[in-house]
């Protein structure tokens, strides 16, 4: 459904992405793992055009184009099909939880008021935030903000949701409520790309693991295989390190 080919990205002279081939099929949950600086977040930001890639092709359903030649209007159309959940939530600070969810529905998608309200209420209910509809982001905990941010993304019925380390900014005791919402979405068949450090989530929920190392995809395997028979030394080392942490927190 969504695919990039030969994606390159440099920041100054530092090459962050060195030719990425990535695809995701409808209904898949792909976890993108790798140590810091391996290019995970940059990959997600290039997919959503928040960073301008230097080179590559993008394919979304029947849309196929050189990623550097893409027009602003096409970017908007593609973004309409994507949801994005940020590491630090990025809820609109001047709007309530409810208004945050309404914004894209009313202003971008021009959904009529009554239907938009119904969608907003339903999605907030789904993430368990309906009681806090009229709170401003400042008045919510990190976990609550992230759940509203997820509601804001799913309200627009995107074909795929990109999660950029959705729990990394949260206190450990608040990650659970966000991961639970994400698990629920996964069960419902939502197509998701999740950049994460949550090994538990990756193991339990993802169908497929992409392991990034030094700007390249070092492994692209079904989740079970990845964890039971890691392909090379780097992955083994990564797993030893992160799974040790994971065991430790349990």
């Amino acid at each position: 459904m969504l695919e990039v080919k030969n994606l390159h990205k440099k920041f100054g002279s530092v090459e962050i992405l060195k030719g990425i081939h990535f695809h995701i099929n409808k209904g898949e949950v792909v976890a993108v793992l790798g140590s810091s600086g391996s290019g995970k977040t940059t990959l997600l930001r290039c997919l959503s055009f928040l960073e301008k890639a230097d080179h590559g092709e993008i394919i979304f359903d029947d849309f196929h184009k050189d990623i550097t030649q893409i027009r602003p209007k096409e970017i908007r159309q593609l973004r309409m099909k994507m949801g994005f959940v940020f590491q630090n939530y990025n809820l609109f600070r001047n709007k309530t939880a409810f208004q945050n969810v309404m914004e894209g529905l009313r202003i971008a998608q021009k959904v009529p008021e009554p239907q938009a309200k119904e969608i907003a209420v339903n999605t907030l209910k789904k993430v368990g935030m309906l009681e806090r509809s009229d709170y401003y982001p400042d008045q919510l905990s990190g976990g609550q903000q992230q759940r509203v941010a997820i509601a804001r993304a799913i309200a627009l019925s995107p074909k795929v949701i990109l999660f950029d380390e959705p729990t990394s900014a949260l206190d450990p005791e608040l990650t659970g409520e966000v991961l639970d919402v994400m698990k629920m979405l996964a069960r419902e068949g939502t197509t998701m790309v999740v950049v994460t450090h949550e090994m538990g989530f990756a193991q339990e929920v993802a169908n497929r693991i992409i392991f990034m190392d030094g700007g390249r995809i070092a492994a692209d395997q079904p989740s079970k295989e990845f964890f039971t028979s890691p392909q090379d030394e780097n992955i083994k080392r990564f797993l030893r390190r992160t799974l040790a942490d994971y065991d430790y927190t349990i």
Binding site: S48, F49, L50, R76, R79, M80, M82, G83, F84, F86, N88, N90, L91, F92, R93, E103, G104, I107, A108, Q109, A149, R152, A153, L156
Partner: peptide
């Protein structure tokens, strides 16, 4: 913060 603008783009605003 830049994130406010990015979030705006990702919900489809111009």
């Amino acid at each position: 913060p830049q994130g406010q603008t990015e979030a705006g783009y990702m919900v489809g605003l111009n």
